[in-house]
């Protein structure tokens, strides 16, 4: 390896101070551009948002300090509770992607000819943008020509206007979201299954374990890292849901499919007016919900780092 290095013709140690402190200073030089960028665009804006949430501001004129008024208004806002409830639905139902992904991964974890292509094609939905997924599912649900209604029509049911019915709309959008998310979890589990220790499986087989018991007691414990990552990305994905709602229903009908992320955007940047302060207050609530999970993820990572 070292032979490939060019002749070290670098300046001879003219400053012994640099030599002595090189290892202490270098990491900061390497970190500087990344930290500056990240602080400027990500860390500071978080605090600014907290600040803005105490003001009444249309984004252009002068901001007026209103204290906790935005939060008080939030407390009486029905649309806020609808969004919050839908966020909860997203969180819970989105987790179905994990068992779903595991199921497909188990189904595909074979070595027949062409299986690689099958795995790639099953993964396909994750690569497509959510905007296109949203469009595809909007047409799939369409009450006049959608495939869904054509199918249930042959059983003598329907038609159901999934996206136009306030009782079904959120479930319909979540289902569209589950499609790519399940594909993601599947690929995580396929990789995990690849690394399962074959000797343990054989030993368990000799002991008479098979089927569900084998899965539960032998395979799943070994898939723990994959499950953790699947859990992280699914939670984050559920709370970030925005694209699908914006494309499929734009929050409707009657705002019944809003979630916090969408409601915030609607309040701050749409024809409903530019209420930056109120929007920021909604964003703060969403951020605090996310913070619970972020703290848990970081804590898990910290435990891991310590054992290394």
């Amino acid at each position: 390896m070292t032979t490939a290095l060019p002749q070290t013709e670098y300046d001879p140690p003219k400053s012994s101070w640099w030599r002595r402190n090189q290892i202490g200073i270098s990491p900061w030089l390497f970190l500087a551009p990344g930290i500056l960028f990240f602080a400027f665009y990500v860390i500071f804006p978080i605090f600014q948002s907290f600040n803005v949430s105490f003001y009444d501001w249309d984004g252009l004129g002068d901001a007026e300090f209103v204290g906790v008024e935005n939060y008080q208004e939030l407390y009486w806002d029905d649309a806020f509770y609808t969004s919050l409830w839908n966020n909860l639905l997203w969180l819970v139902l989105y987790l179905l992607a994990i068992p779903g992904g595991l199921f497909i991964a188990l189904f595909l974890n074979q070595t027949v000819t062409g299986i690689r292509l099958y795995k790639s094609l099953f993964f396909f939905p994750f690569v497509i943008s959510q905007v296109v997924v949203g469009l595809v599912f909007t047409w799939f649900y369409d009450p006049t020509f959608g495939l869904l209604n054509s199918i249930i029509g042959t059983f003598g049911m329907g038609p159901i206007n999934v996206l136009g019915d306030e009782n079904y709309v959120t479930y319909g959008i979540i289902l569209a979201g589950l499609w790519p998310q399940t594909a993601y979890c599947m690929i995580l589990y396929l990789t995990g299954l690849n690394a399962v220790d074959p000797e343990q499986v054989e030993a368990a087989r000799l002991d008479g374990a098979k089927g569900a018991r084998m899965l539960w007691y032998v395979i799943l414990p070994q898939l723990k890292p994959a499950t953790f990552i699947a859990f992280v990305v699914t939670i984050i994905g559920a709370l970030r849901s925005f694209d699908l709602i914006s494309i499929m229903t734009n929050g409707g009908p009657f705002g019944e499919s809003r979630v916090l992320s969408f409601y915030m955007f609607e309040v701050a940047l749409s024809e409903y007016g530019f209420r930056m302060g109120y929007g920021a207050a909604i964003a703060v609530v969403l951020f605090l919900i996310m913070l619970i999970f972020i703290a848990y993820f970081l804590w898990s990572m910290y435990q891991e780092e310590r054992t290394r």
Binding site: P27, L31, G34, I35, F38, Y41, V42, I43, F44, P45, I46, Q48, S49, V52, G59, I236, L239, R240, F242, L260, S261, M264, F265, A268, L269, M276, G279, A280, I282, A283, V284, L286, F287, M290, F293, I294, F297, L298, M301, Y302, E305
Partner: peptide
């Protein structure tokens, strides 16, 4: 501070976009 800076990057990567939206747009 190594681990703390690392965690700052990780945590920032998980925040909801909406908490950044108003300031970043303004910026």
């Amino acid at each position: 501070s190594n681990l703390w800076i690392f965690f700052m990057f990780v945590a920032g990567n998980f925040v909801p976009f909406q908490i950044l939206m108003v300031p970043v747009r303004d910026l």
